[in-house]
């Protein structure tokens, strides 16, 4: 147990090799730009249309605001979760096992820690690309009118990082692609349903509320909404941010440790 805390809390030393990992992924991203564009930005945009505007048109008022105003910060958080999660699981698992790209990179002076850090940074960047794209469209749609939105962008960056770390952790323990189906259908999707993305968390039975607050997405969504409400005096806002920061830190260390052990045996 002592060892567990040591590996979870000690930050690994990182050289600048991570930049080249990021660069490799960027080159590939540039080649497959339109595929990425489609699922990274257009998919959340469809949700915005169907749920936000479509379903939302039947709801006059939710916690004192219009449904689209309620839904949009949640959608941003869910984008910040989904994109890094899929990048960190399916894509990285393929690189780790079938393509053996990490083994290839390890022939050079780049260390496993740098590979992990570079990959997480990349998954974060891609998630953030989705977030920024969606925000830009929302700006044109008139959904963003408050400069506090800049603060939300910081929260979303942390969220992207957190989920890219979580994805890497799942990749490190995955046996095959089925593992990710469990992780997606058994964890990510249910989490998005109970974390207050579509309706307020308080609407649910107590047990689900508790589970929602154990998991990270609810904190991210609540935090974004609190910022847009200018609820800066509310102590819960600071609990949320502490939770997100701690989880980002711990998950990064744990997943870095696990992948490193898997890469160099």
């Amino acid at each position: 147990m002592n060892n567990f805390f040591k590996t979870t809390l000690t930050l690994a030393k990182i050289g600048d090799g991570y930049r080249y990992i990021w660069y490799r992924n960027f080159l590939q991203f540039r080649r497959t730009f339109f595929v990425s564009l489609f699922w990274v930005i257009l998919e959340p945009l469809m949700y915005l249309g169907a749920i936000g505007f479509g379903v939302g048109s039947y709801i006059n008022n939710i916690k004192g605001q219009s449904y689209i105003d309620f839904f949009f910060p949640g959608l941003l958080c869910s984008t910040a979760m989904m994109v890094p999660f899929f990048e960190g699981t399916y894509t990285n698992f393929t690189k780790l096992t079938f393509q053996k790209i990490y083994q290839h990179i390890l022939l050079t002076r780049i260390t496993p820690q740098e590979i992990v850090f570079g990959e997480m940074l990349w998954a974060t960047s891609k998630g953030y690309f989705g977030v920024l794209g969606l925000s830009l469209i929302a700006l044109f749609l008139g959904l963003i009118q408050d400069w506090h939105f800049i603060l939300i962008l910081i929260v979303l960056l942390i969220t992207c990082w957190l989920f890219s770390c979580l994805a890497m952790l799942i990749t490190s323990v995955a046996k095959n692609y089925d593992s990710f189906i469990y992780a997606t259908s058994g964890f990510i999707i249910p989490m998005s349903l109970i974390s207050g993305l579509y309706f307020p968390i308080e609407q649910q039975p107590l047990l689900l509320q508790i589970i929602a607050y154990i998991l990270p997405l609810s904190h991210s969504i609540d935090l974004c909404r609190a910022i847009l409400r200018h609820d800066f005096m509310d102590y819960r806002l600071y609990l949320h941010i502490s939770y997100l920061l701690f989880m980002s830190y711990a998950l990064y260390n744990l997943s870095s440790y696990k992948i490193t052990k898997k890469l160099i045996r």
Binding site: G17, Y20, Y23, R24, L27, Q28, I101, L107, R109
Partner: peptide, 14 residues
């Protein structure tokens, strides 16, 4: 994921 020359270029970067 890359062609022959890009493999070499990337490796040189690494």
């Amino acid at each position: 994921d890359f062609n022959a020359i890009d493999n070499l270029r990337l490796f040189a970067k690494y």
